[in-house]
């Protein structure tokens, strides 16, 4: 399961997607919307994605992880649109025979996703909006 969605992410469905008889561990990462940036209250986060390329890059990251760790199954779902505080922006699930690999693979996937997947977010503050990371 590799997807971009405008609907709230069903975390259980992402976990279910990586269930495997050979798995002794399922590691799940949930990236959520935080209520502040450098002590400044955030009201809302707007995510935008270049859908076709984002899905292609997420699949490539899943393939790279599968080449490095004994992954049974991997699922990556990223949300786009307007998200409220506390909502899940991304859910990643990885199943492996033993737990260590599932932690490592999950961390690799979220770290790489943040670097290469074409998704942008705009933080909405009370006094205006800022595209995150756009300027030095």
């Amino acid at each position: 399961m590799i997807a971009i969605t405008e609907e709230p992410i069903n975390t259980q469905a992402v976990i279910d997607a990586v269930q495997a008889d050979g798995a002794g561990a399922i590691n799940v990462f949930i990236g959520t919307v935080r209520n502040q940036t450098q002590a400044k209250p955030v009201i809302q986060l707007d995510f935008e994605a270049y859908d076709s390329m984002a899905v292609k890059k997420m699949q490539e990251i899943a393939d790279q992880a599968t080449a490095r760790w004994p992954i049974q199954k991997v699922a990556i779902v990223h949300r786009k649109g307007a998200l409220q505080i506390g909502e899940a922006a991304v859910v990643i699930a990885v199943s492996t025979p033993h737990r260590k690999a599932s932690f490592e693979a999950c961390e690799f996937i979220i770290d790489t996703l943040k670097q290469v997947v074409p998704i942008w977010k705009k933080e909405k503050f009370e006094d205006g909006d800022v595209w995150v990371a756009a300027h030095p």
Partner: peptide, 26 residues
Amino acid sequence: NDDYATPEQTLSAHDEIALIPPVCGG
């Protein structure tokens, strides 16, 4: 065409081109 391009890559009128500012998913 859904991949990051190298600086020397030649473009054609049929290409699907996109401008990618700093990404920050997750």
